[in-house]
Design a protein around this nucleic acid. Sequence first.
DNA 1: CTCGTTTGACTAAGCGCTTGCTTACGACGT
DNA 2: ACGTCGTAAGCAAGCGCTTAGTCAAACGAG
Lengths: 199, 199
Amino acid sequence: MSGTPESSRGDLARARLLEAAVQAFAAKGFHGTTTRDIAAAAGMSPAAVYVHHRSKEELLYLISHDGHQRTLDLVRAAVAAGTTPTEQLAEVARRFGAHHAEGHTWARIVNYELAALAPGHLAEVLELRIGIETEVRRVVEAGALTGEFDVPDVGIATTAVLSLGIDIARWYREDGRWTPADIGEHMAALALRVVGARQ
Amino acid sequence: MSGTPESSRGDLARARLLEAAVQAFAAKGFHGTTTRDIAAAAGMSPAAVYVHHRSKEELLYLISHDGHQRTLDLVRAAVAAGTTPTEQLAEVARRFGAHHAEGHTWARIVNYELAALAPGHLAEVLELRIGIETEVRRVVEAGALTGEFDVPDVGIATTAVLSLGIDIARWYREDGRWTPADIGEHMAALALRVVGARQ
DNA sequence: CTCGTTTGACTAAGCGCTTGCTTACGACGT
DNA sequence: ACGTCGTAAGCAAGCGCTTAGTCAAACGAG
């Protein structure tokens, strides 16, 4: 019991290393990053990584799991914030898009470094991904059922909405001319067009 | 002057190594792949890689450059195959989508391994990417001008069309329920919705 | 309050292994 | 006999991770 559990000396160092790993993995990929890179970016010696984390892969897992969990929570909150499928889909796309622009750094890791996860960790993360996809699919299905949407193929429409959001992590630049909020608005409009929503 | 230039012994080995590199880079990423992986997949010794190619990075460059060039050619041909922006955009999305599904393996490398290219090679490849984007943007702009399309933002619409195609490389599985041709058809329809084309 | 002891954060050094790539040298078709 | 194609062996560098130990802060007995 030494002070608040969030701000102990060790926890701070752990978070600093994690943030350094996020930047490095996003810029150079998991395999392109060395543990010495991470340590240097955190202003510590190479051995410090192993004081606070079990392995380089564990750092990736922590980033990936946390990123997926937060995204799943965000999507569920967006669905809960609307009453009709149209409202729900727009809100999901808006928040999902803004989230991926704002957090494009970790989003790159979350979406493009899955292959570097250990089998057990990958399985855990894939379940969260299925959860995210399922949430979106349900909204699309509901809209198709009420006739609000016109979707030739629910799977393609779901994938397309997710694609538009995920791919933001690939093309987004902070010095570009759109803010995350702008992108969220555009994504909401695009998602409604993709599902053929009645205007 | 020894036989056809395409089928000499050396050229065959070169192509075999290149194909092995495509499979390996796509599965494990550039930095996750070793030159021994590539040699083994081509059924040769580790040193054989360097008989036919200058470096591991050169293999990536050859794959990336060729992939981009073929995509640019494909987009230009698709534009030339239509007369109105609506026809042109549908054809671009159709061929672009089918191409990315059919060639999802190299498409992963082409779109997600840019950071591993040497600076000079990267610059060359980025110019081809700009060419591809420009072709699509011109069609979107033309449609907006004729009133066939309803686009609040040309940049976002262009990016969205490209996103839908590029992201196929991430999610496409050969054992899924859509063929590349199916995906091409869906992409054509989705692209028209994205730009608000009059039906 | 004092002072030896404990605890946790951190590092210098380095271990065993793998990496991209090179060198020296055979094998084989023409 | 010659040039092309290929390999066995290995080098220097870099990799993930470990070990042994330093140091400052926290602690508890007297």
